[in-house]
Each structure stands twice: as C-alpha cells, then as structure tokens.
C-alpha cells in the first residue's frame, strides 16, 4: 500500500478513526537520520500491503500534531490502534523490530 501524507487536515480521519493499525512517521526534510528512516518505512508499507496503514507527517508543516503527541526528537515512529498510541520508536529503528509490533 502506498505511504500516505498525513497532516492536520486528514489525521483524524486516516489515523484516529482507522479500523486498521496505523504506522506514523514524524520527520522533517532537513533531518539526516529521517532520510535513512524513510526507505525503511517504505519497505514496511510494501511488505504489509493492505493490512496496515502507513503515513508520514512533516513536522515543519504540522507543528500542532508534533506538539500534541509530544514529539521532541525525529524520526519518531508511532503505531496507532483504534485511535490510541500503542508503541513509540524514537530514532532510526530496525525494520524487523517495527514489524514485530505490527503483525
């Protein structure tokens, strides 16, 4: 499944109201480590296909969301289930470690 671009306008609908688990990657274009995380997120989206929703949030354009979810370090990856955060990874994280929480 392709990776969604998330932001204030669609966060409620795509993440909080989602029936599926949602993986959210908070990132910024100027953040070096985020660039290394990005292909890992893309691979996860590809591997899990329709089972999980995967999206990215640019913190520069969506500061309210970053503040609301206490993001203080990027990349931060959160897994949402039925509107609640069930797991948070801070910093570049191994693909298999993330997959372990999604299957």
């Amino acid at each position: 499944m392709s990776v969604l671009t998330l932001g204030n306008e669609n966060f409620k609908e795509e993440v909080l109201n989602s029936e599926k688990q949602v993986l959210v990657d908070f990132y910024a274009d100027w953040c070096g480590p985020c660039k290394m995380m990005s292909p890992i997120i893309d691979e996860i989206a590809e591997e899990l296909g329709e089972n999980v929703k995967v999206g990215k949030i640019n913190v520069d354009n969506n500061q309210e969301l970053a503040i609301q979810y206490d993001v203080m370090s990027i990349p931060t990856i959160m897994i949402f289930n039925k509107g609640n955060i069930v797991k948070t990874f801070i910093g570049v994280t191994d693909k298999n470690e993330i997959l372990g929480y999604l299957k």
């Binding site: 910024a28 953040c31 480590p33 203080m72 370090s73 990027i74 931060t76 801070i90």
Partner: peptide, 17 residues
C-alpha cells in the same frame, strides 16, 4: 527520558527547542 527531552543530536532535535 530518551526522546522525552533527552537528545543525542542538536542538529536533528534542536527544532523542538
């Protein structure tokens, strides 16, 4: 408190401060 105010990278996380 890693990731909750503890950071290892000023250039990455300075933005939040």
């Amino acid at each position: 408190l890693e990731g909750k105010g503890i950071s290892y990278c000023a250039i990455c996380d300075g933005f939040f401060y």
